[in-house]
Design a protein around this nucleic acid. Structure first.
Ligand code: FES
Ligand code: FES
Lengths: 157, 157
DNA sequence: TAATACTTGACAAAATTAGTCAGGTTTGTT
DNA sequence: AACAAACCTGACTAATTTTGTCAAGTATTA
């Protein structure tokens, strides 16, 4: 039960874009540097978020990415669904699959994974980027000399 | 966000053991046949469940596995934790890791994945095998001639 | 004492994930 | 018009994890 890096990087990248909300586009290069995510990999991630309608791209010089909606209207769930596919704990609970599963009406486990999946969605959808921004601004952020910022190792959030 | 087969097979195997509760041990071979899970693979799974104190093994002829507690006291969460490790969406949220993460106090994502993780645990722990048994017995289980029973393909629950 | 059943650890095939790379195309600026 | 900044696309590969298999045990009881 781990999140893939796509989901984690996606949230961090989108957080940077959300932070910029109302102040023009943020370039992919800038995001890559601030969050220490490989530029090429980030392209894939942002592209998916674009296709999902969460962000919009502005081309040309001084272009970049912009949030497509207000931060309060973008949830962690939107990002996770866009990057990790639908929340279906088992393959046969995915949207199109239901009808194919010939033992659906005799499957004890179905109820279990369905219910847990619903709870996960609930939790993911209850957190918006507005919440993240509020939390971020609420914190003490003095620049102590030796203090490091977001360096994403393998295990980082 | 998928469950591994270990977790899914584990629940199905334990369901069979729970069904047998109070009627002596159920052999690994029997479970393997009823749920169509490879015997060798099942050994690994049951062994882990044993180490976690969820089941007990009875050796010798007519031996097998028995639930260590009443079905109502074994939850899906117990099984998932035993087979997939602690529910930590990100590596750095795992039990022993917290102190190592040097950016924990400056990590926006931490709150998100912690909260979602808690919700998942809540959902998993709210379902016991007693619930599964009740649901199972509540269903109409007539043996219609052509009807097939649990054949676990790759995508099955 | 033979048969049944659990125990352990090593190993390999398959699938997935994570990330790179090499080209594009679009668009604002000069 | 030309240039450069920035996004777009798809193919490709290395690393990791998952999913098992296999072999050689040890324990127990009919
Ligand atoms: S990276 Fe460790 S708390 Fe987020
Ligand atoms: S196997 Fe399809 S519903 Fe469970």
């Amino acid at each position: 039960m781990k999140l893939s890096t796509k989901g984690k990087y996606g949230v961090r990248a989108l957080f940077e874009i959300a932070r910029q909300y109302g102040q023009g586009p943020l370039s992919i290069k800038e995001i890559s540097e601030r969050q220490k995510i490989s530029l090429s990999y980030l392209e894939q991630i942002l592209h998916r978020l674009g296709k999902a309608g969460i962000i919009e791209s502005v081309r040309g010089p001084h272009g970049g990415y912009v949030l497509a909606r207000r931060p309060a209207e973008v949830t962690i769930g939107d990002v996770v669904r866009a990057l990790e596919g639908p929340i279906a704990l088992s393959h046969c609970l995915e949207p199109g699959f239901g009808s194919e599963c010939y033992q659906a009406d005799d499957c004890v486990a179905r109820m279990v994974w369905t219910k847990v999946g619903e709870k996960i969605e609930e939790a993911l959808d209850s957190i918006s980027f507005e919440h993240l921004l509020q939390q971020y601004h609420g914190k003490d952020r003095e620049l102590v000399p030796g203090k490091k910022r977001a360096v994403a190792g393998k295990g980082a959030c």
